[in-house]
Nucleic acid binder design. Structure first.
Length: 493
RNA sequence: CGGGGCGUAGCGCAGCCUGGUAGCGCACCUGCUUCGGGAGCAGGGGGCCGGAGGUUCAAAUCCUCUCGCCCCGACCA
């Protein structure tokens, strides 16, 4: 990033994204390729995501647990498709000791080679299903509804902060059910939880849908997804929920005795979202001044900037600012920026770049008037708010208005960039001039799907749930064969 | 694994072509004046120029080798 500015979105979207992350002081350079050092302000966003989501999981009957990050290598080979999907990007632990080397450094001690290498989990299905086999015996043990907050490692060739990193933080829910229907219901229910969360908390209007076979999770029978649109019209998969059938139950021999006394394999789901959501929030809302955060995930929702010129003003301004902070504190994430050797203007710019929704300026004039001067990060001019009985409610009303405004703007953008086209040529033409979601009638076929990807880099993001049925009587926009689904094509991260 | 680029102060860079022993901006430290939209002035600290070898009286600069990183592709449940 240049010293003062941020690359405009229109000029170079990728650079703009990196600039916004730098301006927001979200991450620092990592000494490890592809891994992130997440600084406090960036981690604060993730913490807000975590606490909101965790409450939603609890409300739907789930509990948290924790499983080891090291998985015996042999576990990975038990489910054929699963190993196919992940084997290419696994990190291995092969030794448990270092020794001094000739060159003065250290090296793995050959005498301390592990009998069986350990895989650093790329996802936890295998070790969790190994344990579920021990925990599940009876239909009375079902359903088993467990979530884990953890880190996982996938040795990706190309990485990008938050969107695709070698190590990332996520939650993974793993559930076991007595019947197929119950498991499918769980998978779709959790997709709904994610979708609600994206709208209500992240202010991102996602499209819930089903993945095509090509894009399906390795080992799943059905993969559900929420797809978000970024400001450049590209799609970002923001969360997934999988119906795993009995694949893992069979691979790890997890059976239960039903009420008739017969043994059956259990039915499974898994679902997850990751720190990629932080990237989604950054890309969905930020502008050419820097980060823009929805109040519900902003680590600092309100920043107070005290202003004084003379020493005699300093004390009363700070005293007033402190009381304002204490008033807002119980209900709001508020920060009083009382750094002394920094001018107010410099603070304004810093907090704007960090995406803080509301800034309250407090100077001698405001103290005299018993009010604060409010500046919103998005929408509206500065205005005074009296510090009276209605003060907290007034600030919260602004936060709500900002949150709503972001969702409205993102929804308007998504709708404007969602194109219904009838022919492939139309999509191909518009993909370069106005990229976005292309809603089309589609005859499902992995081979033609691949042809399209090779030809114009667009892939099926999902078969959106809201539009299924509309394809009836229509011809596939690419092949002309009878359409089997409504599909959304887009270029994707 | 292909194609391209870059390694010089904490960060971002110039200097290299045409060798003469290192500079700029930001950040940092000290002081004074400032303070309602990115402060100004003065002074100061910090780098064996990625590494090794070679040419030379002399190498950040030229030559050879090497290591690392970044970008574009391949890859991406």
């Amino acid at each position: 990033m240049s010293q003062q500015g941020i690359t405009p979105r229109e000029k170079d979207y990728s650079q703009w994204y990196l600039d916004v992350i730098a301006a927001g002081e979200l991450v620092d350079k990592s000494p490890v390729r592809g891994c992130m050092v997440i600084k406090p302000h960036g981690y604060g966003i993730w913490e807000a995501v975590q606490s909101d989501l965790d409450a939603r999981f609890k409300a739907t009957g789930h509990v948290n647990a924790y499983f080891p990050m090291f998985i015996p290598q042999s576990f990975l080979s038990k489910e054929a498709e699963h190993v196919e999907g992940f084997a290419k990007e696994c990190a291995l632990v092969t030794h448990h000791r270092l020794r001094s080397a000739e060159d003065g450094g250290v090296e793995p001690d050959p005498a301390a080679t592990l009998e069986e290498p350990l895989v650093v989990r790329p996802t936890s299905e295998t070790i969790i299903w190994h344990m579920y086999g021990k925990w599940i015996n009876s239909h009375r043990d079902l359903p088993l509804l467990i979530n884990q907050w953890a880190n996982v490692v996938r040795w990706e060739m190309r990485t990008r902060p938050f969107l695709r990193t070698a190590e990332f933080l996520w939650q993974e829910g793993h559930t076991a059910h007595a019947t197929r229907d119950e498991a499918v219901e769980e998978a779709t229910k959790m997709l709904g939880v994610y979708s609600d969360f994206a709208h209500e908390t992240l202010a991102i209007p996602v499209i819930p849908g089903v993945k095509s076979a090509t894009e399906r999770f390795a080992g799943a029978e059905e993969t559900y997804t929420i797809e978000a649109m970024m400001q450049n019209g590209w799609a970002l998969q923001a969360g997934t929920s999988h119906f795993l059938g009995q694949n893992f139950a069979k691979a790890f021999d997890v059976t239960f005795q039903n009420s008739e006394g017969q043994l059956e394999h259990v039915w499974a789901t898994s679902w997850g979202v990751s720190t990629r959501l932080v990237g989604a929030v950054i890309m969905a809302h930020s502008d050419d001044t820097g980060l823009v955060l929805p109040p519900k995930v902003a680590p600092v929702q309100v920043v107070l900037v005290p202003i004084w010129r003379k020493d005699e003003d300093k004390n009363r301004v700070l005293q007033f600012a402190n009381s304002v902070r204490d008033t807002l504190g119980p209900s709001t994430r508020v920060h009083l920026d009382d750094r002394e050797k920094m001018k107010p203007g410099a603070k304004y710019f810093e907090w704007e770049r960090k995406g803080v929704p509301i800034r309250l300026e407090i100077g001698p004039r405001d103290v005299d008037a018993n009010s604060v001067f409010c500046a919103r990060r998005t929408g509206g001019k500065k205005f005074g708010i009296p510090v009276d009985d209605g003060f907290v409610a007034a600030v919260h009303a602004e936060l709500t208005a900002i949150q709503d405004g972001l969702l409205q703007a993102a929804t308007a953008h998504r709708d404007a960039r969602t194109h219904r086209v009838d022919t492939y040529q139309q999509m191909k033409d518009q993909m370069d001039t106005e990229p976005g979601f292309f809603l089309v009638p589609w005859h499902d076929d992995a081979e033609t799907e691949r042809q399209i990807k090779d030809d114009c880099k667009a892939t099926i993001r999902c078969f959106p749930l809201a539009y299924q049925g509309e394809q009836a009587g229509k011809a596939c926009f690419y092949s002309g064969r009878p359409a089997t689904h409504m599909a959304i094509f887009a270029r994707a991260y």
